[in-house]
Amino acid sequence: MIVAGVDVGSLSGETVILRDGEILSYSIVRTGADSALTAKKATDEALKNADISFQDIEYIIATGYGRVIVPFANENITEISCHAKGANYLFPTVRTILDMGGQDCKAIRCNEAGKVTNFAMNDKCAAGTGRFCEVMADVLGIPLEDIGKTSLEAKKDAMISSACAVFAKSEAVSLLRSGVPKSEILSGVHEAIASRVFALLQRVGIESDFVISGGIAKNIGVIKKVAEKVGLKPLISEEPQIVGALGAALFAKERYKKG
């Protein structure tokens, strides 16, 4: 049985294809203005990687911010449920998940079956999300994939407001002008992100094992700060960006079986 999960986020789109419950292939593409097109692009790429055709897929579940506009999906389920499901598949002992995506971050508690028992999401602000990191990388002229490593060179954190991404950007510009090293600004940015997401985690209660998923899980600077605050070593999968799509694919498998 071949099923797929498609996660259309605000910054990236992912598709995971499962064959008999095992990951057959996956893809990660950049989100364009058209969510339906992003979903198609991601799915086409995953199909190509698996060397199968669209007709081979028996059931598809869409998730993420653009989940309702995936025209070829059979159903849609929120990314909160899908991240819990996906994390539980990868790490069956997981009880707390922090998903840091493009435009929102979520703290999720789940049980041994991967079912959500509580969750909290960021409020109306992009601070603590992938977009925030992108903006900061852009201001500092450092490639996004290098900001984590660069921040670790800092001797101390610059003070960055965690209240608003736009204000934080202005703060970073002023700090740059006053000669504060980029590494310290980035370290401050990561501290601000960690402090916001830690508050979310505390709202749902932290219990081990603790998993971090989403694009920001690739930023070692943020991970270090979050781990320090939480006091637990986070489990991170090889490809943390596909956890939501994986969860959607697992739901697809369940729902298809149920008929």
Binding site: Y65, I77, T78, E79, I80, S81, D104, K115, V116, T117, N118, F119, M121, K124
Partner: peptide, 20 residues
Amino acid sequence: FAEGQLITRIEAFMEMIESR
């Protein structure tokens, strides 16, 4: 009012209630 964001939160809440 950001309806899309609210819908995600409410839907996730409903999914959680349905599974308990």
